[in-house]
């Protein structure tokens, strides 16, 4: 049959496209070991691991890292609770205003981040709320809800309503059904949603610049280094760390859900 095989041109374009998506990231790995301090010269004149030690000894990096971890952890926890609640409500019932609510959930990532950021900034301004870790978390949790929601709602739909009824039929009350039936079936989807939310929060920079004030998360620290470079190789090392910190949860989320009909991450 003629449509079974792709032409060479298509195959080349597809694989070329995939390489285009991945090669630039690999370059970061190389640059983290360069001996060249002042420019981005390629090829690196020599290789060294001294920048990892230099980064290790920088207190500002540790501060930024710990703030990022704190923000991502709290924002993810909040988003998991709120996202699970809303997906439980939206998965089954049909009620007045359902479409409007689903739009409201998606809006924080459908509109450009600069709008979410600027809106929060305006609100904090009007209400005289000073910038703090809390204001960063507020923004992050808001756009993380939809990530958890997307993962959980798909699983809720796939879980046939029958098993919840069967549980009640066999004498389980609502809490027993939640604990013994719903949670075990929802677990991996929630965990995957949490992983992705964590990765998104850890990496977020656009909304954060509007809600952070003087504090620097790791991406903000990196952004400042990009605009006003101080020690370029150290920035390379931090880029490597940020990449790893987002890459691993994403990969984990994929493996948690890959056997389902809905695989995590197909929508951001």
């Amino acid at each position: 049959m003629h449509s079974d095989r792709a032409s060479w041109a298509l195959r080349l374009a597809a694989i070329g496209g995939l390489l285009f998506l991945h090669l630039p990231i690999l370059l970061i790995f190389l640059y983290a070991f360069t001996t060249e301090e002042r420019t981005y010269a390629f090829p690196p004149p020599g290789l060294t691991t001294e920048w990892f030690a230099a980064a290790w000894n920088r207190p500002d990096i540790w501060e930024a890292l710990s703030l990022s971890l704190k923000v991502a952890t709290v924002a993810t926890a909040l988003a998991m609770v709120l996202g699970t609640l809303v997906s439980a409500a939206m998965a089954r019932a049909t009620f007045f205003g359902r479409d409007q609510i689903s739009l409201l959930i998606i809006l924080p990532i459908a509109l450009p981040g600069v709008i979410t950021g600027m809106s929060l900034r305006s609100a904090f301004g009007i209400m005289d709320i000073p910038f703090s870790t809390l204001t960063i978390i507020l923004g992050h949790a808001t756009f993380c809800i939809v990530i958890v929601y997307n993962n959980a709602v798909a699983r809720f739909r796939r879980l046939s309503g029958g098993v919840l009824e069967a549980s009640a039929d066999l004498g389980a009350n609502a809490f027993q059904t939640f604990w013994h039936i719903l949670l075990p079936n929802l677990g991996t989807a929630l965990l995957a949603g949490g992983m992705l939310a964590f990765a998104l929060s850890f990496d977020e920079v656009i909304v954060t610049t509007f809600t952070a004030g003087q504090q620097a998360t790791l991406p903000i620290w990196m952004l400042e280094e990009l605009i006003r470079p101080r020690q370029r190789p150290v920035t390379n090392v931090v880029a490597l760390i940020v990449f790893a910190a987002t890459f691993l949860p994403i990969l984990l989320a994929y493996y948690l859900t890959r056997n389902g009909s809905e695989t995590a991450g197909s929508g951001k």
Binding site: G162, V163, E165, A166, D169, G171, N173, H180
Partner: peptide, 25 residues
Amino acid sequence: NTVFQDYALFPHMNVRDNVAYGLMV
């Protein structure tokens, strides 16, 4: 008790735990 049309067995439990579910709760 009900035997459901699509059986509605709990997919994450083995047969024994499925059958014992009503007694467990």
